[in-house]
């Protein structure tokens, strides 16, 4: 299954419902909710952290947590 960390720059995905317990409360409160569309805007030069946009919030998070949050990839929804 894909995670936020497996997105490429410019790609979008939907945060999966099963990630609810993994997402830290603070990240939830900042708008990173299951069912929300998330897009990867930029990756820092050393591949980490990731610059994302979710629910209108522009955030930078580390790969460590991004690789735990599962998503369904918008671009391959038909698979």
């Amino acid at each position: 299954m894909n995670t936020i960390a497996s997105l490429k720059i410019g790609q979008k995905g939907i945060i999966s419902e099963e990630s609810l317990d993994i997402i830290p409360l603070k990240l939830l409160e900042m708008g990173c909710l299951p069912g929300a569309e998330i897009s990867l805007i930029q990756i820092a030069p050393l591949e980490d952290p990731l610059y994302i946009c979710v629910n209108g919030s522009h955030l930078a998070i580390r790969k460590e947590i991004a690789s735990k949050i599962k998503i369904t990839n918008d671009n391959c929804i038909n698979e």
Partner: peptide
């Protein structure tokens, strides 16, 4: 605690 920072406009 983990790292998160808002990228403001």
């Amino acid at each position: 605690s983990f790292f998160v920072i808002e990228m403001p406009n």
